[in-house]
Write a protein that binds this DNA or RNA. Structure first.
Lengths: 333, 333
DNA sequence: TAATACAAATGGAACGTTCCCAATTTGGAG
DNA sequence: CTCCAAATTGGGAACGTTCCATTTGTATTA
């Protein structure tokens, strides 16, 4: 392969100085229209693209957003990450992804810090964390002044980060309003009870149950939040003879639906996330739709407007979710 | 934040030359055990990590694998990408991800070349493309000597790439064997007819249908391969009064299942990919399981063993898939 | 016309490595 | 003690940018 053209080659071809070429590729101001065109033309002819390394080495940052996806297997996370990428791309900002290998063996989640360290080595100008990372040690030596936003999760150990996520209180209120309107009395909450989101959502349910004067009744899925865990917990919950089950997320709800099918019982079920499969006719799960577009636009705003970030540093921003009513709560069986 | 320590700082603290520090961080040979430990200790105390940019700028490559994910919304792709990442990580090789924003509007897939260009700007030492990219223009100025492997797709315009994917002939043979054993006669194939994988799989079905002396009957989903397209095509296919429907992939099959539920018909259905949701009790889709582990190990082998790559350059490697029998083909309704 | 102001363009230093090479030290074997 | 190879050193030149202090150019004003 031919040696890649450098800024010098472009300068030579355009008959200007290297510095001018650098200016053209950096900012808009201070370069005459005439020269700019000459330079761009030369660059195009040579097929010049700036060397990201040299740039980053010299300037200390290279203007991209690092996106850490907590769990690559969670479609909600990957979908969200891609939405964010598109939104940033529209603003001319590039994103790199890394994921941290949550191995969910024995219910014990573990994080491999290396990929995150690699991402940080690339000196992103800001960091977006999608989902919750149980263990924040990989962020120990994070630069003080690196803007960090975490979405779809509370921020945990990252004191300075901003967290953007759905308002679980609203979500649980909507679910309970819906179920009470349908006349349900005996309702069970099914979900994990580990830290962070699981805890928050569970206590949101408890709050709303109290406000709605619904008898509190819960079944735990331990640390897991999967379909398999939902299946087991669902069978367990059936012993309480409920008429409705409120699940931590769609995956757990799918498992619960399987449990109902297996036991041949008809009970209302609700999920959380409105994942792709919840809309399938045979699943048709009543669920909570997180307003991804709003979350994304908040994220973009926070990470592109320095003042915004400063203002919300260490705070949490709640986005109002919406209830999607489907057959799982209305047409039982 | 404090200035990041450099190789000089480490050298000073360890009381050795900078050259030696560089040697320690690079290769194993030629440094005594004693000195190596001293250097590593000093580096650790200072929290030194090599500056990836300076290194890459000077040496021209930085030893990571670039993974391009054709479609972030395809769980098969993301899952596979993460498997590959883990496999490389186990060998101490790091991966970066990029995706290229396939916008599937009006059935016309479009690729944004910028993210891929950015990834290439980072000079990966090899490239893994997960899935099929309809338009290969972003790879126009790919370095001649960059090893490229493409999985779950034929390699299309990338002449020098190696493609690793499942053997569709075997898959279709297994499906037809299974359906014929069950006594089906009137079988319809439902799937897209666009280029590459869609074409290959379709013609694999046609071949096997001929060999099995099954009357050929197909319904197209146009360019799409989604649940929505499956729903429409499924309803269309019902007019042919089939007893079984073979679908291009799980998503299409899910749509077809919806169509059957809506029309209240009982027809055997098979998918392809064995995605997570196909195992749900209420879906229970008979489908083809791609041997991801084998594919991953082939990929790792190809991209870490230079001879292997050279040997297979421009060729295709087929992995034998397996049939997973579930209710959708055996217990109708 | 000369003085001034400001925009446009320039040249060189610096960023932290790796690569190269010649020079020096160390350690073990003969 | 001598010799040789291995280990270590030191320095300088890249790598391709960005940053900074200057210089050059052009237009405006007195």
């Amino acid at each position: 392969m031919a040696k890649r053209p450098t800024i010098h080659d472009v300068a030579e071809r355009a008959g200007v100085s290297k510095s001018l070429v650098a200016l053209v590729f950096k900012s808009d101001s201070g370069v005459s229209q005439k020269r700019r065109e000459i330079v761009l033309k030369a660059a195009k002819e040579l097929g010049y693209t700036p060397n990201a390394f040299a740039s980053a080495l010299r300037s200390g940052n290279n203007g991209f957003v690092g996106i850490v996806i907590a769990d690559f297997h969670n479609p909600l996370f990957t979908e969200f990450a891609d939405l964010a990428r598109q939104a940033f791309a529209a603003k001319g900002i590039f994103c790199f992804f890394a994921t941290s290998s949550i191995s969910n063996i024995d219910g014990v989640e573990k994080i491999d810090p290396v990929p995150i360290q690699h991402l940080l080595d690339l000196k992103p100008s800001s960091l977006l964390i999608v989902g919750g990372l149980v263990d924040h040690t990989p962020f120990k030596n994070i630069p003080e002044d690196l803007p960090v936003v975490q979405v779809l999760s509370s921020k945990g150990a990252l004191r300075k980060a901003v967290s953007v996520r759905s308002n679980d209180d609203t979500a649980m209120k909507q679910i309970l309003d819906h179920l009470l309107t349908l006349g349900h009395k005996n309702i069970v909450y099914i979900g994990p009870e580990s830290e962070r989101v699981a805890k928050d959502r569970r206590s949101a349910y408890e709050n709303q149950a109290k406000l709605h004067k619904v008898k509190l009744s819960t079944v735990s899925t331990g640390l897991a939040r999967t379909e398999a865990a939902g299946l087991i917990a669902g069978l367990e919950a059936l012993k309480l003879k409920p008429t409705a089950m409120v699940c931590f997320n769609d995956n757990v709800a799918f498992g619960v639906q399987d449990a109902l099918a297996r036991a041949n019982h008809k009970v209302a079920v609700t999920g959380y996330d409105n994942t792709f499969f919840s809309s399938l006719e045979r699943v048709s799960l009543t669920t909570i739709d997180q307003d991804k577009e709003s979350i994304v636009s908040q994220v973009v705003w926070l990470l592109t407007d320095n003042n915004a970030l400063k203002k919300y540093q260490g705070k949490e921003i709640f986005i109002e979710p919406g209830l999607v009513v489907r057959n799982s709560s209305t047409k039982l069986g």
